[in-house]
Write a protein that binds this DNA or RNA. Structure first.
Lengths: 151, 151
DNA sequence: TGAACCCGGACTGTAACGGTCGTATACTAA
DNA sequence: TTAGTATACGACCGTTACAGTCCGGGTTCA
């Protein structure tokens, strides 16, 4: 279906939420979960993953919580999805593990791999800040990005 | 994981296989399945779906099988994936059904919807013929395609 | 000390995916 | 007309992954 998981969605939402509040020292998982109406325990696990990957900094104890470990502009959507869902490949046979278990004539993977790279490139070009800044009612040119694809 | 299903993979492989043999009147599901070592019954179901969507023409009986219903150049990978896996959206909440069941502040969907359109555009720009023509050993510029994305 | 918070493993229910089986139907050739 | 080959289609099943919950533990601060 080519869709990313809810976990990744939640993660992006949480990072966006943090990016919009750079002045607060830390926000608890519960705070963010309540803001969006998502399960707090689930979000907590997601934030823990992001922390382990270095995208967030955590602080335990009273008034603890999570904060971005680097500027929102330097965190790409790609990093977030990668941290939560692991490496994704559009083709079922990743060719990284042990090639394709099907016959060697599975020649469609190669062109699809290019598509995969293109998608990754698009996601890499989107930062959390881009998401957070999208709060404009209307009427501004949000700088189009160009992507090239060679089959 | 952002990966397309094996069914879609199989469908693309089968169409590519047909596109490489435009002179044959029809190929049975078993022939194609054997060529790639994939389950014949499963491929048959996939080809039936593609037939129902109008991408293939079927012919029962002796020497029957499937054939492309239109030139390979005018069948896009997007159509194939859409026919097999149904409409895909990168966001979990499609906004088509009944909006987002989460709080109204789920503002990350909009930029991700752009990404979704970009991916769809990429897949639409790839034809079955592109896949079939990829049989070159090396040394030719396969015309790069450009894609624009505005967040 | 205790409340508030993070950490992380174990567990569960549901749904989709991948695949199989069996049967009915359609067509062609001998 | 009959046998064989093929599609058509629905029912079924095992596995996996996703989404979510539960609980025991460790930190920090008031």
């Amino acid at each position: 279906m080519l869709k990313l998981t809810k976990k990744a969605d939640y993660g992006l939402m949480a990072l966006k939420y943090l990016a919009e509040r750079p002045d607060t020292p830390a926000l608890s998982a519960k705070d963010i979960a309540d803001a969006y109406g998502i399960p707090a325990q689930l979000l907590a696990k997601i934030l823990q993953q992001l922390t382990k990957k270095g995208l967030l900094k955590s602080h335990a104890g009273m008034n603890g919580g999570y904060a971005l470990s680097k500027p929102a502009a330097s965190i790409s959507a790609y990093e977030v999805i990668l941290a939560i869902d692991g490496p994704f490949f559009i083709t079922s046979c990743t060719k990284g593990a042990h090639g394709c278990d099907l016959t060697p004539s599975c020649t469609i993977k190669e062109p699809l791999a290019r598509v995969n790279e293109t998608i990754a490139g698009v996601l890499k070009s989107i930062s959390i800040q881009d998401l957070a800044e999208h709060e404009h009612p209307s009427g501004q040119a949000p700088e189009p990005k160009l992507v090239t694809l060679t089959i």
